[in-house]
Amino acid sequence: MSGRTDLDLGLTPDVPGTPGLLPLDIERVERVVGHLNFDATTALALRVLTGEPASAGRD
């Protein structure tokens, strides 16, 4: 399997708050991951996906 570069995903990383970019909505992550009923997984997903990405301050 190889990566593809010919697909337009419609992501606009230069526009904050657009779909597909971090951070994600807290309530949505809780709902989607919370159904697993494993508190550690939900807590990790919330920490990783809902906070500012580490690269946010880089220019």
Rank of each mutant, 00 (worst) to 15 (best):
P23N: 04
D6C: 02
G57P: 05
P19Q: 08
V15C: 04
D8T: 14
E27S: 12
G57S: 09
G51T: 15
A43K: 03
T42P: 03
D59N: 09
S55Q: 00
T42D: 06
G57L: 07
E52W: 08
T41Y: 15
P16G: 06
D59Y: 12
L36E: 03
V29G: 00
V33E: 01
M1S: 15
D6G: 04
G3M: 10
P23D: 03
H35S: 08
R58L: 14
L24W: 12
E27C: 07
D59W: 13
D25T: 14
L21R: 10
R31K: 14
V32K: 02
A43S: 13
T42G: 01
N37W: 01
I26E: 11
L49G: 02
T18S: 13
V15L: 07
G10L: 13
P13T: 01
E27W: 12
R47Y: 07
T41M: 15
D39K: 00
L24K: 01
R28K: 14
L9A: 07
L9G: 08
D8R: 14
R28Q: 12
F38C: 06
A54S: 11
T41Q: 15
A45Q: 01
L9H: 07
A40H: 10
A56H: 09
D14H: 05
G20V: 08
P23E: 01
G20W: 12
L21G: 06
F38R: 14
G10E: 13
S55V: 06
L44N: 08
P16S: 09
V33G: 00
G3F: 12
A45K: 01
G20H: 08
G20C: 10
D25Q: 12
T5S: 13
L22P: 06
